[in-house]
Amino acid sequence: MKYTPKELSENVNVSGGHPLVELAWLAGGLAAIIAVIWLGLFLVAELVIPRVPIDVEIWAGNRLLSQQAHRDNPSVTRVLRHLLAVLPGDSPLRRYNFSVTVAENDTVNALALPGGRIVVFLGLLKQVRSENEMAMVLGHELGHFAHRDHLRGLGRGLGVALAVAMIFGRDSAAASCATNLVHGLEMRYSQRQERNADVFGLDLLVAGYGHAGGATGIFSRLAGESGGKAAYVLASHPHPEDRISALKKMIAEKGYRIGAGQCSPGKVN
């Protein structure tokens, strides 16, 4: 038998197709799946959260946070009591037993936790110059309770974390990718919640003090420190300057008077 060597022109062992096209299909498909999961959780949260009874929330909050250290600050609590006193009589917020905790942390932020606990970080407290500014901060957090944003974020966050962990495993590179994507979606939504909470806070501030003085003070101090607006595209809060202009617009629309803030330095720290 004569051996005739032959060169193979095609390779059946390697599939064709550009790898980037494959990546686009796989990554795009998964992104779509995650977006659908997020949207589903979002809709469920939108349907369920407003119907969660406040009693259940308070019970869960106490169960979750009973171990947390509680550091009372009399002057901040006094501002909170003052604001709560001017809430309308039929406000659902009246059923909460609110408390304010000051957390020893330089973060410039405040949190609304389930069950009516407000956490103000020391970093934010140091920035506050007057009682009215404190009232604006607390009013903003009360706005989160009124709109029940604190539960929404919690529910979706847990759901997405579970879904991502189930699909990708606990800490793989793909999981971090997916989490970042969801984080982006979450933050855009979160910025809207913050704006609505600002509206609530402003109304409460005016109801409590008769004028809108101090509504923007804390934000203008923050605006000086925060970077450009590009950094805020994926941030949980809108850029301070945007918040100031939105608040000013609202003050003008509603015809609120701007009086001097009740300055009492040292009192809140």
């Binding site: 390779n11 062992n13 390697v14 599939s15 197709g17 790898p19 494959e22 990546l23 796989l26 990554a27 498909g29 998964l30 699909i167 990708f168 793989s172 590179a173 793909a174």
Partner: peptide, 25 residues
Amino acid sequence: YFKRLLGILRSIVGGRVKAYESLVD
């Protein structure tokens, strides 16, 4: 690293792992 990413993504939905075929070949 790129092929690994493709492999990981592919392992979620199944199918031919094209990215690895050329390595073995």
